[in-house]
Each structure stands twice: as structure tokens, then as C-alpha cells.
Amino acid sequence: MTDIPLGASGRMKRRDLVKALLADRGKLLAIGGLGAPAWDITAAGDVPENMPLWGGMGGAAMMGLGLALAQPDRPVAVITGDGEMLMGIGSLATIGVKQPRNLAIIVLDNEHYGETGMQETATRHGVDLATMAKGAGIADTRLVTQPEEVAALRAAIHAGAGPLFAQVKIDESSEPLVLPPREASILQARMREAILGKAAHLQ
């Protein structure tokens, strides 16, 4: 996994990073936060075990908590952006109190609001999400900057020793759009069927 290419900034390219995190994913369920992270998880494979979000900014981590509590035997990864995480930053406290062992929150931190014209986020100005997560009581908190660190992060997502929070510094360049279905009832129904079987539709 050390072959994740670096962009012009010297930081990892987001698509390759997310593909590496979701490789050989087994029972992993992934929630992709509004915007580029939703396209990133879709580019890695538009599978039912993905929940790419078209809205609900600020809610990705809490969706991860509800899912992780409902499915304690499956690893759940919330892969979201720095702007999305900042909007729901209080949810780190909620999650820190509940301590779900199977939940990992991975923030793809390009220090910008990428969908709206690349305005700078607070992380551009030194706000340290990993330290905020640590302060919220999430013990396994990582700042990831090097491709060599990604294999260990992927392993930790699957290990069930969470909650885990990783702030991964990524290159700010945009990637081509890879869009999931836009009809959100399909997105939820296919994920529920993947988890619960056909009985999901009769609950």
C-alpha cells in the first residue's frame, strides 16, 4: 500500500487512498460523507455495502454511530471530508461517550470545501481535528500523512478495537466525478438487504 501516489502538494491522492482503505473489505460497511468522499467510495466500487451521502451535511459520523450500534459485529467506516466533519463536530463527544468498538471515522482532510469552490476550511488555519477527537474521548486517534501509514490504518478499521478517528491529510486536487445512484431510497434499501437479507424489506 506504499504505492499511493502523491499529488502536487506532496500529500496522498484521495482516490488511491480510499481504494486502499476499502480493498479486500470483507464485511466492512462504509458511509461516504457529502461531496467528494461519496464519489471516492463509489469509485472504489459502487456496492450495496456503501452509503454515499447526497445530503445531510454534518451527519455522517452519527449515521455511523447508529449503524455501528445496530450491527456490532461488522466494522463500520465513516469516510468523510474536513468540512463535513467540522459541521458535526459535536458528534465526536456523543461517539466518545458511547465508545463503539466497531466504528472508524476517517476524515479526508484537504483543508478546503471542495464542492463549493475550494474555500478554505478551519483545518487550513491550524484547527486540529485529531486533537479534538482525542479530547472527546476517542483513544485511537491518528494523524496520517504518509502512504506507509495507510496499511496500519486499514488494519485498524477492521480490528474492532475502536472507536478510531483518523485525520488523513490529502492532496487538494479534484478527481473526476464518479456518481452513485441519486435515488436515495435505492441506496438505503440495497444496503439494508446486504446486511439483513430480503427480510429487510418486510421489517
Binding site: G58, G66, L67, G90, S91, R192
Partner: peptide, 17 residues
């Protein structure tokens, strides 16, 4: 910490049954 977290959490819960 704020009520909209609950809307998101209930969605995640339903995804997981």
C-alpha cells in the same frame, strides 16, 4: 450535543435493522 445528530443516528440505526 444537538438534536440533528439524532436524525442522522436514527437513519444509521435503520440501515442496520
Amino acid at each position: 450535543t444537538t438534536e440533528e445528530e439524532g436524525i442522522a443516528m436514527l437513519f444509521g440505526a435503520w440501515l442496520g435493522g
